[in-house]
Computed example of a mutant assay.
Amino acid sequence: MPDKSKIVIWPLYFDAARSREEGRMISREYAIKEPNLDMIITASIKSGFKPEIEREKRHPRTWHRPEAAGRILVAKTGSKSAILKKIAGSLRAKYKKQAAVKRI
């Protein structure tokens, strides 16, 4: 269990295909389709955090899905929702750029 000075962030917090009941923690406006751990790591670094990566961990609800493996820990510098929203903003900006490139 991580210490109280860090928060746990799972990729499913940002998955637009999931409902809040299924684990999504941000609004659909900021959510993306099929986020993975590497995308979350990149977005957290761009948001100014220094994530600790734990690739072997699995979310308790989705322990049986190999694509849902991994989590990051970041220093608690404010509320969890504010940190998630900041990371989601970076994630969404990168995701929109990739979507625009694929259309061409």
Rank of each mutant, 00 (worst) to 15 (best):
I45W: 05
Q98L: 14
L12I: 14
S19T: 15
A16M: 06
M25T: 05
K6L: 06
I87E: 00
A99E: 14
I7G: 02
H64Q: 12
A88Y: 02
V8P: 00
E52S: 14
A68V: 06
H64A: 13
Y30M: 10
S81K: 15
P35W: 06
P11F: 04
A88F: 04
K33F: 11
K4N: 06
I41S: 04
G23F: 08
W63I: 12
E34N: 15
E22A: 15
Q98M: 12
A68R: 11
E22P: 03
P60D: 13
S81F: 09
I83H: 04
D3T: 11
D38L: 08
S19F: 07
E29V: 11
S81V: 10
L12R: 09
I40M: 05
K96R: 14
V101W: 11
E54F: 13
R24N: 06
S44H: 02
R28L: 08
I32F: 07
I104L: 14
R61V: 08
L37N: 03
M1T: 07
R103S: 13
A93G: 06
A100K: 15
P2T: 08
K97Q: 11
Y95W: 14
I40D: 00
I87Y: 03
R58A: 09
S90L: 02
I26D: 03
A69I: 05
P66D: 11
I87C: 02
L12P: 01
R20Q: 13
L73F: 14
P35G: 04
A88G: 08
L73M: 10
Y30K: 13
K57L: 09
R24W: 09
D38C: 06
K46F: 01
S79D: 10
N36T: 08
A31L: 01
K46E: 00
E52W: 11
R103W: 09
A75D: 11
K97H: 09
T77S: 10
L84G: 05
Y13C: 00
S19M: 04
I83G: 03
I32Y: 05
D15P: 02
P35I: 04
H64R: 15
F49N: 01
F49C: 01
S81P: 02
H64G: 07
K85I: 03
E21D: 12
F14Y: 11
M1Y: 09
M1P: 01
Y13L: 03
L84D: 04
R65I: 12
S47Q: 00
K6A: 00
S44Y: 00
R103I: 09
G89P: 01
